[in-house]
Design a protein around this nucleic acid. Structure first.
Lengths: 128, 128
DNA sequence: GTTTTTGCAAACCATTTGCAGGGTC
DNA sequence: GACCCTGCAAATGGTTTGCAAAAAC
């Protein structure tokens, strides 16, 4: 645990939705933390390995990251407007995977499920 | 419909799994089709718009494309070894989405579901 | 004191764009 | 002939890497 890593971890903790590396770089610069871009990338990679953060792909094709509330297997639901994200556990994917294996003969190894939509407050803001 | 587009479409048709743009560029060069990289990108974008091809993200984070057998809503299952892919329809995601909306209050707009595993022939090759 | 991490800058690689020439209808 | 498409090459933007100095253990 080094100072830079702690700094990056704090930047992530202070965000409550999906973010891109560029966001962290901007945050770091704004708060004058002096953390280099490369270090941010390296720390993210580390955190992904630990399961504290997950990488996901926005519909736009952009790579983002989200902080995970749990290290158990789960998926994410991200607001397409404010990026706020929630973890989703127990989506019943096991049954789907089994069914897919039966149908196709493939042996499914991993799956990616990402949901996108409007969070409650952005719905309210939109309908107003 | 132009010559270059037809050429790209044929390159795609002659592949039976997920591929990257670099693959098409290599194919085009190998077959001396003289199709520029930029044109390949532009044609792919076009085909994605038509629903003939879909963009997906491999577990590695790399962007790939797959040819779609149907233009109806569906998902993909890709072999992590040979990239061979199959379309999956009717995965029962509607029920999951409804449940997620109930639980979270989000209004789900779109979802991405991608499955990865070993296709039957790669399983056979591996176990040998 | 040895090992790991950092910052910096340069290198990389995928993707996009501007533009003049060529193809399509 | 008007308009769209293509090739080329240069620009872009995100991500990675090499390396010497600095921090960690």
């Amino acid at each position: 645990m080094t100072g830079s890593r702690r700094a990056v971890a704090e930047l992530i903790a202070s965000r409550d939705g999906a973010f891109e590396t560029a966001d962290l770089v901007a945050d770091s610069r704004r708060r004058k933390l002096g953390v280099a871009r490369a270090t941010i990338f390296r720390t993210l990679e580390l955190l992904v390995g630990l399961g504290a953060v997950e990488r996901l792909d926005l519909p736009s094709g952009a790579h983002s990251y989200v902080r995970c509330e749990t290290t158990r297997h789960h998926h994410h639901l991200v607001c397409i407007r404010c990026q706020r994200a929630v973890d989703l556990e127990d989506l019943g994917m096991t049954a789907i995977v089994t069914e897919v294996e039966r149908r196709t003969g493939y042996k499914v190894d991993r799956h990616r499920v990402e949901l996108f939509g409007l969070c409650p407050s952005c719905q309210a803001a939109t309908s107003t």
